[in-house]
């Protein structure tokens, strides 16, 4: 599997480590209520199809990136810097 880092270009997946779904970028407001926080902390989708997850370019530039990929076809569709998604 090859992942395109927005800074370094196409790289081998061994340079990246996986964090999980990009929920960390959608942290609810502290006052958002129990349901929102329960969802944020515990509930994860398991999509057959397109998913967005966070990868760390550990063996490269050290950027956190959000990768859009398809869990059915294994196609890597795109990637963005997490810093820009969160902004």
């Amino acid at each position: 599997m090859r992942i395109t880092c927005p800074i370094c270009g196409e790289r081998d997946s061994r340079e990246f480590s996986y964090r999980g779904a990009d929920v960390a970028l959608h942290r609810p407001d502290p006052e958002a209520g129990e349901a929102a926080w329960d969802d944020y902390v515990h509930l994860r989708d398991n999509p057959a199809g397109e998913t967005r997850d966070m990868w760390y370019h550990e063996g490269g530039c050290g950027a956190w990136i959000v990768v859009t990929r398809n869990t059915v076809t294994h196609e890597v569709i795109g990637s963005e810097l997490a810093a820009e998604v969160a902004r």
């Binding site: 370094c8 061994r14 340079e15 550990e58 063996g59 490269g60 530039c61």
Partner: peptide, 10 residues
């Protein structure tokens, strides 16, 4: 230039 790995080393 590149930041990359040589074997498992940064």
């Amino acid at each position: 230039a590149a930041r990359t790995q040589l074997m498992h080393m940064s």
